[in-house]
Amino acid sequence: MDNPSDQARFDELIHAPLRLRICASLAPVQWADFSLLKQNLGVADSVLSKHIKQLADAEYVRVERFAKRGHSHLRVSLTEAGRTAYVGHVAALREITAGEG
């Protein structure tokens, strides 16, 4: 897999603009708090929840609920499969934009 095109794979699920932005936000971190994602992406709870559910159903993200100071919180992370799909999708986009795809 030394050749980037070995990893390149266009992913319809990730390609949707908000889901791509979610994956891009999660890629550099271990976990992201739902409220921080919502704020950074500038979307409503329901919109973010819908897209996270689609990614979770595909096992691209892991969702964890926990209590902190008596309040319920939700955090999200990319799974190994999600990270692989995201990296492959970005590689495919690079090939397409470079005129190689």
Rank of each mutant, 00 (worst) to 15 (best):
L20T: 00
R9I: 10
R9F: 10
A8F: 12
G88W: 03
V87G: 07
F10I: 07
S25C: 05
D11I: 00
H89I: 03
T84H: 13
A58P: 08
A32R: 00
A8E: 08
R94Y: 11
L41R: 03
D45G: 06
V63M: 03
R69K: 04
F34Y: 04
V43G: 02
R65I: 10
V43L: 05
L48Y: 01
S25N: 06
K50F: 15
I22W: 02
D11E: 05
I22E: 02
A92S: 11
L36T: 12
A67I: 12
A98L: 10
G101N: 05
A98E: 07
S46G: 14
R65G: 11
R69S: 09
G99T: 03
L36H: 04
P4I: 10
E95H: 15
R19D: 15
F34S: 09
V47C: 13
G82S: 04
V87H: 04
H51K: 09
C23H: 02
D6M: 13
V90W: 04
V61E: 00
V63L: 03
G82L: 00
E95S: 14
Y60I: 05
L26K: 00
H51S: 03
Y60C: 08
M1A: 15
H71I: 09
A67G: 09
F34P: 02
P28Y: 06
V76W: 03
D11M: 07
A58G: 05
A44E: 15
Y86M: 03
T97W: 15
C23Q: 04
G70V: 08
Q39E: 14
T84C: 10
S77V: 01
A16E: 15
E95K: 13
F10Q: 08
S49R: 14
G42F: 10
L48A: 03
P28V: 02
E80I: 11
S77A: 03
Q30R: 14
F10R: 09
R83S: 12
L55S: 05
F10Y: 10
G99C: 08
V47S: 15
S49N: 13
R65P: 07
Q54L: 15
F34L: 02
W31G: 03
I96C: 08
I22Y: 04
V90M: 04
D2L: 15
A92Q: 06
